[in-house]
Design a protein around this nucleic acid. Structure first.
Lengths: 205, 205
DNA sequence: TTCTTTTTGATAGTAACTACCTTTTTAGAG
DNA sequence: CTCTAAAAAGGTAGTTACTATCAAAAAGAA
């Protein structure tokens, strides 16, 4: 209980240090993954680079995967989606949200995010975990889509539209994984355009 | 090289034994998973139940996950999809294929398959791996969809339709994973109908 | 049988995670 | 400033999935 006022502002000195440690771990992890590959990088190496013990690593991230999947962009995207004017249909709202979020990011942030995406889409383990995470959040997303369509949260058609949006985005993000052009998503503009075109195919109805 | 004729017929005595061992492992694995849970079942236990050594287990299945994901229904489904008359559009063809495959299965086979699906959809690890597997095959699927639409294999719109089909099926198969009704897919008819309705939402265009 | 190849088993090692306990650090009270 | 309680970090030991490697056994061909 102690001070009942501090609960409101989470800006304690301790919290800041924790946030910094978390960011440090993630930064070094991403660097090592890029340098040596995901599988070749051990938790011990990450801990050593971040100057913490392996025990501490697990206090900040439950799994190795979460070092990459712990994400700040997705929540932003969802918030932007929610913030769109009610007149917009769900697909249009999501298209606008995507463009808005990426336009609000600095070049460095975009670079980091694109690197993260490249890693996630490349490593099968991460790809699976990412999509599974998305499925976990799917109910919420489907509910919001339903609300925006003026239906009850559990509406079947809304759920299906949400599913189609999800599938279309996945299909756009995993471009010919076989062997073809893994490139093409080098800059944010190309990414936004690709995702936008994907969602647009759902609006021609 | 040895005998150049046997290559055609794969019905050696050795092959049959291997197939039997594979089936035995999978059967015991599924049983133990159902009895004790997926995470609580070790490879050692599976090996012991199947009366083989752990080493041998890994010769038949590369990972624990594959014991569940090694699947005979999906390829069948894909084949049935390909076999549909050319006049049918991709969505209609897939709807027909699903119904056909499940109608061609015995009650016991359906039960086994439903149990497998329940397990896969319940365990996050498996869910992720399954979907990642699907993404791996996605290119082929999208190509077939494109052909059926009379376009070139890499056609964007076809790819998006394939993605939408994928997403809609996922959304239908993972019913309110949060906490709501995990039931409802107790019999094959309910499953078929659910998947059919999902795909049907893509045809109203 | 005998030779060859395939299949199996056993052993040792790596690395992700878990559980648990001890030490250090930090924030606030007196 | 000091003392105390809590939070954070470090350390140890163990489990389990998975890999690599080699030796033993079984099956087929000659």
């Amino acid at each position: 209980m102690s001070t009942s006022r501090d609960e409101a502002r989470p800006t304690g000195l301790r919290e800041r240090k924790k946030a910094k440690t978390l960011a440090t771990i993630q930064r070094h992890a991403m660097r090592l993954f890029a340098e040596q590959g995901y599988a070749q990088t051990t938790i011990e190496q990450i801990a050593e680079a971040a100057e913490i013990s392996p025990s501490t690593f697990y206090r900040y991230f439950p799994t190795k995967e979460q070092t990459v999947l712990y994400d700040s962009v997705d929540p932003e995207l969802f918030a932007a989606f929610l913030a769109q004017p009610a007149e917009l249909g769900p697909v249009a709202a999501f298209r606008t949200a995507i463009a808005g979020v990426y336009r609000g990011m600095s070049d460095a942030e975009v670079d980091t995010e694109l690197g993260r995406q490249r890693l996630v889409l490349t490593v099968p383990e991460l790809r699976g975990a990412l999509i599974d995470g998305a499925i976990r959040d799917f109910d919420v997303f489907a509910g919001v889509v339903a609300t925006r369509m003026g239906r009850e949260p559990a509406d079947f058609a809304a759920r299906m539209l949400a599913g189609a949006m999800f599938g279309v985005l996945v299909a756009a993000l995993v471009p010919h994984l076989g062997q073809l052009e893994q490139a093409k998503i080098d800059d944010a503009d190309a990414l936004i355009q690709r995702l936008d075109e994907a969602l647009a195919t759902l609006e021609d109805r």
